[in-house]
């Protein structure tokens, strides 16, 4: 097994290939995105997996970027909040957050939106209770929770129950 203290990392972020040389293996995916790639939409609220502000999609699954060593993402595909919209056309979840006032300060919002987009793909929109439970990995101190549920429900194309 070949251990190294510096690594070459190739990964795809928002559809763009990146190759980073000389990467310290301690760098988390979150810090890589923010400090190396300057994709600061993904937020650091706790750095311990306790808030969800850092939620991104890794190979299509929502995960906490603060809990991942960047080096372990070799060859993987990452989508961040900056890559969710299709050009100028907002993702339906993004539009729904605006339409339903699903945020206030906006700091948790990138994480909420990424979580919600994945949740809809996962199919956890059977009821408001299910949405609430599956959105509980994202804290919002402004407490936009009811509006977030409305936004997710709307984006999932479901009428109010």
């Amino acid at each position: 097994m070949n251990f190294h203290d510096r690594h070459l990392l190739r990964l795809r972020v928002n559809g763009e290939d990146h190759s980073l040389s000389d990467l310290d293996p301690r760098v988390t995916l979150l810090d890589l995105l923010r400090e190396r790639l300057h994709l600061t939409g993904t937020k650091k609220g706790c750095n311990f997996g306790e808030c969800g502000a850092c939620t991104v999609h890794l190979d299509g699954r929502r995960v906490n970027a603060c809990m991942i060593l960047a080096v372990s993402c070799e060859g993987r595909e990452v989508t961040t909040i900056e890559g969710l919209a299709d050009g100028d056309a907002l993702h339906p979840v993004q539009q729904a957050f605006i339409d339903h006032d699903g945020f206030q300060c906006g700091f948790c919002t990138p994480g909420q939106v990424m979580s919600a987009a994945a949740l809809i793909e996962e199919g956890h929109t059977g009821s408001d209770a299910e949405i609430r439970e599956w959105m509980s990995g994202n804290l919002c101190r402004c407490s936009a929770y009811p509006q977030i549920v409305e936004a997710v429900r709307a984006a999932a194309g479901r009428a109010s129950q």
């Binding site: 997996g49 969800g52 939620t55 699954r61 929502r62 995960v63 906490n64 809990m67 991942i68 979580s115 994945a118 949740l119 996962e122 956890h124 599956w134 509980s136 990995g137 994202n138």
Partner: peptide, 9 residues
């Protein structure tokens, strides 16, 4: 346990 995101990891 934990949260949906954490359970994916």
């Amino acid at each position: 346990a934990a949260s949906p995101q954490l359970r994916n990891l």
